[in-house]
Amino acid sequence: MQATTATTAININETVVTGRSLWDSWTTMWNGDLPLAHDIIADGFYAHLSNTLTADPATLRNAVEVEKWVVRVRSRYAKLVYATHAGPFVDVTAQTVTCYWKARGVFAGLTGKAGDIVGKEFTVVGTDILRFEDGKITECWTMSVPLEIDPLS
């Protein structure tokens, strides 16, 4: 019985460490370290997006396509920096990691949004859930909304 308990504790700890590490890499990738996509995205990846203006979820099936997606999003702004504000929270049973994040950026006049004035700063908040298997992200759910009034500044 003790061996099972010890093994279970090790598996739980490894899953938590993996989930947190994947979250850190996911955020680092979104902050511009694009080659990380090849280390963290599984073939057959699937994205559930609340905003499909920057990508068709059906095309985001591997690291190459995820990297292109990140490039498309980042290229629309003069500056874009993501930071974690709550989490990462790892569900070891579901092998998921969840975080509340905030991105601060500067418009470049390339989004087509009404408030996109070159040089104007903006903030977006969101929540991502990443499912992982064998040390790679297999699926993500993401939602984000712009913040008109920033309660965390």
Rank of each mutant, 00 (worst) to 15 (best):
W69G: 00
W26F: 14
R76H: 07
G112L: 13
Q95F: 04
V97G: 05
P35V: 08
G87D: 04
A94F: 01
L53E: 14
R74H: 13
E14H: 11
L147C: 06
M143W: 00
A42P: 05
A47Q: 05
S50T: 15
V17H: 07
D91K: 02
A6G: 01
G112W: 09
L22S: 01
T15P: 06
E121G: 13
T8P: 00
S144M: 12
A3C: 11
L53K: 15
Y77T: 07
A42S: 12
N51K: 15
A86N: 04
V70G: 04
W101N: 03
P57E: 06
R61K: 14
L130V: 05
V66D: 02
T54M: 14
S153K: 12
L53V: 15
T84D: 14
A6K: 03
F107M: 04
R76T: 07
V73T: 06
E139L: 12
E67Y: 04
T27C: 07
V124I: 12
A63Q: 03
V118G: 02
V106Q: 08
A47R: 03
V70R: 00
V66M: 02
G115R: 10
V97E: 05
G87I: 02
V125L: 07
A108C: 10
A78G: 14
T7Y: 00
A103K: 01
R131I: 00
N13T: 14
A94S: 13
T93Y: 09
Q2G: 10
N11Q: 14
T142D: 13
L34F: 13
P57I: 00
L130Q: 03
A86Y: 07
W141Y: 12
T54Y: 10
T8G: 00
I149R: 11
T98Y: 01
N51R: 15
S25M: 10
T52E: 15
A114L: 09
L110Y: 03
T52L: 09
I12Q: 12
V92A: 08
V17D: 11
T28S: 15
M143N: 12
V118I: 14
D91N: 12
L60F: 05
T4D: 15
T27A: 13
A114T: 12
Y77A: 05
T127E: 09
E67S: 06
K102A: 11
A37L: 09
P88I: 08
F132G: 03
N51Q: 10
A103G: 09
G109W: 01
R20L: 00
G32S: 13
Q2W: 04
R20Y: 08
A63E: 01
G105T: 02
T18D: 03
G87F: 02
D91G: 06
R131M: 07
L36N: 01
R76S: 11
I129F: 05
G19M: 05
R20F: 07
K102T: 11
T127W: 02
F107A: 03
L60Y: 04
T54L: 08
L152T: 13
Q95H: 14
V71I: 15
D43L: 09
E139Q: 15
L110E: 09
V92Q: 03
D116E: 05
L147G: 02
R61I: 14
G87Y: 08
M29W: 00
V125T: 08
M143D: 07
V66A: 01
V17I: 15
K113C: 00
